[in-house]
Design a protein around this nucleic acid. Structure first.
Lengths: 288, 288
DNA sequence: AAACATAGGTGCATTATTGCACAGATAGAG
DNA sequence: CTCTATCTGTGCAATAATGCACCTATGTTT
């Protein structure tokens, strides 16, 4: 089988009429075009080109083959177009990584309206406790509760997450000194809201430990005790009320991060705008 | 534009399912196939293949492009077939080499009827004193008066060339001891018919030496003397008559020779049959 | 469970291809 | 007719591609 690239060079020679013109279009030396076409002739055992001092007209055989070569050229252009279409539709699947609660309660509820406005963009939302590695393409864009430290990332502050203490009405009506508490397990003692909760215990017990906010919320709804929840969870739960606490509750910045070259694509811009909007509305940076 | 040969390698990978299988079919190293497909992916900005430890399945995008690549492959096979067809019609010009007299007087007069029967085959007839080098493609087929010695040639005896002494009627009517003779020059003393002629001189002179049979025939027609000519020349010349000679005239075999692979082509078979027929009719192996 | 065969990735030496510079030829302009 | 610009072919140095050997991983066979 002949080298398909030799045929490519021949097809351009056939269309342009000279080695030099073909070379200019292909971005190679005229000698290379000459050698490639000669290699094709040898491979096919056929004279495709009459070699004159200043011209290289096609032979009759060359003209016959040029038609098929032209068809190959059209196919290769179709492949390029198809590839571009696939590339564009490939970036129209945007993968988001966010802390589980943020993913499930802050972002997921708004995906319906996003999809209605942008049916051509598919969102893939992953609730992840760990920071997704953008450098390994684990996600295209990430929502983080701590400011990313990587140098080459695009980083934008999009919101402020307020926490508060929540319990059922019955639990809230009890004498404060009889309250019991719901918290994370001790592996997460470093979290800002966990530090705050331990600070307000005042000798009162943590009677339930859960590994995520969902479990804490469910236990609080069941009347087990009081839990430190993000306001977007507590405020939107009709069974829970906010408890007053002397110590001011913590606030954590919400960050959006992605690689700059990826974030330039239209689909990515659209998704990043969407995330900034809903998080900005639910967790505004400036207190209302 | 991507390298078309990269696409070729990808099309074989797509069809065979593995780098190793593609490499075997293409006759290259599996590493080369891997690199070529990677180059294609880079050029198209697309992931075509999932790289697993023992497999390289196509991605969805890869499958989509594989269809177009397969179409390119079919076209390239059509190009090969078309090229072979053109090559075969190119060999429909058959080049014949024969001794000059055989070419001009034995073969050339019959080319008209050959062409009428085979308008698609072009004959190129060369009268050559030296043996055309078939190994250097100086001719496709040769008529020889000596048996070729090359090992790998196809060799066939197609006729017997009879010689005789010819002169005009006036010369033939003279007393035999007064005859003068026409011969080749001394560089051709080794020829069978020249040896025979010198043997029948009986002291009579060679008064004219020519380098070819045409010159000898023209001198004989002019009444200069007697010449040893092939019968197909002498018998077909109304101005010449055959002279009786006691010593039996020589006979030389006529050989047809060509390379076997070339002689298998239909055009070559047709031409070789034509040569064997006309030479067999004019110079039969068995005396009539 | 162990051994064997095969697949894919990678570094490096070898081989092939390419670009560059130059020469010869030709067509067009002055 | 002469000069200029451009085209094509070729030798050689530089660059790129390939094959080879080796390593790791996996599936199959014993």
């Amino acid at each position: 089988m002949f080298d398909w690239q030799d045929l490519h060079y021949f097809s351009v020679l056939a269309r342009t009429g000279s080695l030099s013109a073909a070379a200019r279009e292909l971005g190679v030396d005229h000698a290379t075009v000459g050698r490639r076409v000669a290699a094709l002739e040898q491979s096919l055992s056929l004279r495709l080109v009459d070699r004159l001092p200043r011209r290289s007209p096609l032979t009759a055989e060359g003209s016959a083959l040029a038609e098929l070569a032209e068809e190959m050229a059209r196919l290769s252009q179709a492949i390029n177009r198809r590839a571009r279409g696939l590339t564009e539709s490939a970036t129209a699947t945007v993968r988001i990584s966010a802390p589980p609660a943020v993913a499930a309660r802050l972002i997921a509820p708004h995906v319906v309206e996003f999809h209605r406005e942008h049916p051509d963009i598919t969102l893939a939302l992953a609730g992840a406790s760990h920071n997704a590695a953008l450098d390994r393409s684990e996600a295209d864009v990430a929502v983080r509760m701590t400011r990313p430290t990587e140098q080459d990332l695009l980083i934008r502050r999009i919101g402020a997450l307020h926490f508060a203490l929540y319990a059922t009405r019955e639990q809230a009506a009890l004498p404060p000194e009889t309250l019991a508490f719901i918290a994370y397990d001790s592996t997460l003692d470093h979290l800002t809201q966990q530090v705050w909760l331990r600070a307000i215990l005042a000798g009162r017990p943590i009677i339930f430990q859960a590994s995520d906010l969902f479990g804490q919320q469910e236990a609080a709804r069941a009347g087990l005790g009081a839990a430190a929840l993000p306001c977007f969870m507590g405020d939107n739960d009709p069974m829970l009320v906010k408890l007053d606490v002397q110590e001011p509750p913590p606030v954590r910045d919400i960050w959006l991060t992605a690689y700059p070259d990826v974030s330039r694509s239209p689909a990515m811009r659209t998704v990043m705008t969407f995330l900034a909007d809903i998080i900005g509305r639910e967790c505004p940076i400036k207190a209302p």
